[in-house]
Design a protein around this nucleic acid. Structure first.
Lengths: 215, 215
DNA sequence: TGCCATCTGGCAGTCACTGCCTATAATGAG
DNA sequence: CTCATTATAGGCAGTGACTGCCAGATGGCA
């Protein structure tokens, strides 16, 4: 609702985004908010892009230009915009899993309650609709693939890193799905942390057999 | 080309599929063959379903009835039809990873060279087109989710199994992707086996750092 | 203030996908 | 073998996601 951040900046920050960039970002937030409302109210498949556009006072063409696909209305996160993702450093770390645990923990801790609420709303839509979940998996693959690609551009690599990235994303999404299925019980980081612990120490038979196995 | 298996069976096998079932299966193989040819020739996005249907001498409506989506023309595998999937037993085994390794190894070993060639063609399409890869991930999640769902219908579960299933699929697809990127060098099972070994014993820092790390 | 680059909106078109109805082919009983 | 029943393929029309194109509007900047 509030678009106070559209006011021009007094100091000339060299890396400051211009007015159009700020307007675009504000419009994207507005469009996504309208979309989430409509999707929750009528169901993802029952809402046409045209309705979202009308509710956000933009043209359908603009919605497509901003988000590309209907699923991206749910998937999109402003954090993805910043290219200097904290995940990038993790994959190149000597201890990737430890770095990921630290980065994700810090990320979740830094979230406000309203941000967490939005995350929960989006995840509910993700796991209720196959098409959105598929888009999320794919988006994550792409992002991580791009990160790994910049780390080792030319080197012939073994399959380990590729397998790890995919397994990491799979495990994370599995953890998020379980968080959702549990009615978002407990802090979100507990689930991701459990997933990372499993990846780090391996899935033993006893781990999978018993429901009680704390790391 | 040959549809010899359409001949009526002499002995009355009680579980034998009827004529329509055999015709449908033959048509699906024919349609998929045409689709793969066209997709490789012109590109997935440049081929309309109508063209596939025309090439296979069926109506477009029938293609949709059989495959549901365009991506399924690539994803579909006759092995998926049989409900008694060997994977089902694996997830309920006391040693799921060992069982998976055995089942997948046996599955790959049983494949003829022509079947392997088809797998390679399909994988090339999968990893060249995001939409198909997304559909594959989704399809795998669904299948595995259904299997796990039948195993423990009511029990409240911890996140471990959910995480494992997703990580397993992620790792497998990562392995397959690497197999594809390597120009399908070596036997396919080596990559999946590597993925399973990593899942079983965990991703250590040294595993991810060096390209050379044999289990 | 005025020029230039960029962006938004509208239009028309393609195509994946679906529900509905009819024609046809397989199945089982007599 | 014949017929009634049932399942299945094909045709048709419609919806909606998504895209290229062009004209008009708007921010960026001298």
């Amino acid at each position: 609702m509030d678009s106070g951040s559209l006011a021009p900046q007094t100091a000339a920050d060299p890396a400051a985004p211009g007015l159009q960039a700020r307007k675009k970002l504000a419009a994207m937030h507005r469009i996504q908010a309208v979309a989430l409302d409509l999707f929750e109210e009528r169901g993802f498949d029952q809402v046409a892009i045209e309705a979202v556009a009308a509710g956000a006072d933009v043209s359908p063409r603009t919605v497509y230009r901003y988000f590309g696909t209907k699923e991206m209305l749910v998937i999109w996160d402003e954090a993805d915009e910043h290219p200097s993702s904290p995940l990038a450093a993790c994959f190149s770390s000597a201890d990737p899993i430890g770095a990921l645990r630290a980065a994700l923990g810090a990320g979740f801790a830094a979230m406000s309650e309203s941000e967490l609420r939005t995350i929960r709303r989006r995840l509910s839509l993700v796991f209720s609709h196959q098409a959105i979940e598929a888009a999320l998996v794919l988006h994550s693959y792409e992002k991580s693939g791009a990160i790994v690609g910049t780390l080792a551009p030319n080197r012939e690599e073994g399959p380990e890193r590729q397998i790890f990235v995919h397994a990491f994303i799979g495990a994370s999404i599995g953890a998020m799905r379980h968080w959702w299925r549990s009615g978002f019980a407990g802090p979100p980081f507990a689930f991701v942390d459990r997933a990372l612990a499993l990846l780090e120490h391996g899935f033993t038979a006893s781990t999978l057999d018993a429901s009680e196995a704390d790391a």
